[in-house]
């Protein structure tokens, strides 16, 4: 589903070039749930950005489904993202001017889906927010906001879901509930999940764990799901 070959990312800084990722090679199968772990600054988020086509590598290539991302311009990659990818972010990234319902409708409307309102309502019901449809992000708690973000991520039934520290801004109990929801939906919809986290406890719930250190893969292990 996702493949990266000899992936490197180098940025220019005031102190000279800095290698954030070096020679990453990996392959993620359909419906697989993969955790990318590592300490802060190990390059996890950069890898996620490259795999999702948000950024281009300095060297190496990335394949999403059958698309070679290196061949595509920004609009081309956006098309691929719209077709295949969903996102969940640490900071939720809900649009403050739109209600919960409208936030979930947005990707559906972008795709030109029919009856986006109905689909969005159903998704918000699935994440337990049927009573909060007309609330604005500001009026929702952190956990609720992340649940809206999850509903939004699944709205277009993407083949791949990228989640960047989805519990980073939540307390333990809320984080746990959100993760349960994420995995349940992931299972139901048969989505490929790429989860970036520094939380080992969360990582072990995935099928596979890729550990990064200073921009290199130091471990890639299949795990038995803990839950």
């Amino acid at each position: 589903m996702i493949a990266a070959q000899n992936l490197s990312k180098r940025v220019e800084t005031a102190a000279g070039p800095l290698d954030i990722l070096t020679n990453i090679g990996l392959e993620i199968r359909e419906r697989e749930a993969v955790a990318i772990v590592g300490v802060s600054g190990s390059g996890k988020s950069t890898l996620l950005g490259l795999l999702a086509g948000l950024d281009l590598p300095s060297a190496g290539e990335v394949f999403l489904s059958r698309h070679r991302l290196n061949d595509l311009d920004e609009d081309g990659r956006a098309r691929v993202r719209g077709e295949l990818v969903g996102f969940v972010f640490q900071s939720f990234q809900l649009l403050p001017g739109l209600t919960a319902l409208e936030n979930v409708m947005l990707p559906l409307e972008l795709k030109g889906a029919r009856a986006p309102g109905d689909q969005a309502t159903e998704l918000l019901t699935q994440v337990g927010l049927q009573g909060r449809l007309q609330h604005y992000p500001k009026q929702l708690s952190g956990g609720e906001q992340q649940r809206v973000a999850i509903a939004r991520a699944f709205a277009t039934e993407p083949a791949i879901l990228f989640a960047d520290e989805p519990t980073g801004n939540l307390d333990n109990v809320t984080g746990e509930r959100v993760i349960d929801l994420l995995f349940r939906l992931n299972q139901d919809k048969g989505t490929t999940l790429v989860l970036v986290t520094h939380d080992e406890h969360l990582a072990v719930r995935c099928d596979r764990l890729i550990r990064l250190e200073a921009g290199r893969v130091v471990a890639d292990v299949e795990e038995t799901r803990a839950s």
Binding site: D75, R79, R81, E83, L95, G97, P107, T156
Partner: peptide, 16 residues
Amino acid sequence: FDMSAMLRCMGASQQD
């Protein structure tokens, strides 16, 4: 800016 970045993530083109 944030909204535009988010929309780009969701697949919106520059023209969109």
